[in-house]
Amino acid sequence: MMSNEQLINTKQKMEDRLIPDHTVGNIYVENARMSARKVNVYYSDKQALDDVNLDIGSSQVIAFIGPSGCGKSTLLRCFNRMNDTIDGCRIEGEIKIDKDDVHDPAIDVVSLRARVGMVFQKPNPFPKSIYDNIAYGPRIHGLAATKVDLDNIVQYALHRAGLWAEVKDRLDKPGTGLSGGQQQRLCIARAIAVSPEVILMDEPCSALDPIATAKIEELIHELREQYTIVIVTHSMQQAARVSDRTAYFHLGKLVEVGETTQVFTNPQHELTQDYITGRFG
């Protein structure tokens, strides 16, 4: 019979053994759009990410999976510096988009976020009309010189998000009046309207029913040709369905990354294996 203390020590040792110092699998890709090197993130004194290195390939979908609190959303929010809005958050390391460091003082966070769009966990349309929701980004960034240009952008974005047919007759109605799935597609359209290079999606389907989820997944499939997409998801099936690469996070560390088919059929690391076979998480 072990004492409590011994038990904790043993558990600690197991964890130490299990979590690798270096990520299993290939973190590099050929034509990387974004890259993270030696990224550490702290919330006040709590470390949320521990020495993460990862490339995000162009025109690819990469899925971040892992149990709650593993740091996958934290890394996602590093890519467009959304962590800036959180008090007491500190980021170390280097994150690049193309050749530019996102933390470079010469890079404006505004233009970074215009290049790296984001879709959130819960659909969050503005309490404005559908049209104004989409037009908001182009307006603030000055992307449309005329009303016709703006109309075109709105129409294009709604088409791309597969929402045009459903809302074309009520563009002046509030966006909050749409169903949850429609709202989320509206948010995707809103992100597309700014013509970003990368779209970050933070569990975009967690608040939606299966049918709406299927529609979003279909949409992601269509968007991959044109945009680089990073998706955080709790659903392994979803990751398997939509992504080209998959990264598995555990306790703030990037445990394993690789081609989705490879990660799901033949995981290299014990933890990844446990997670995708449903032993925990």
Partner: peptide
């Protein structure tokens, strides 16, 4: 709601 602010920041609002 903070979600509305996040939405605006995510689109690149100052």
């Amino acid at each position: 709601p903070q979600a509305l602010r996040d939405a605006a920041y995510g689109l690149g609002s100052t």
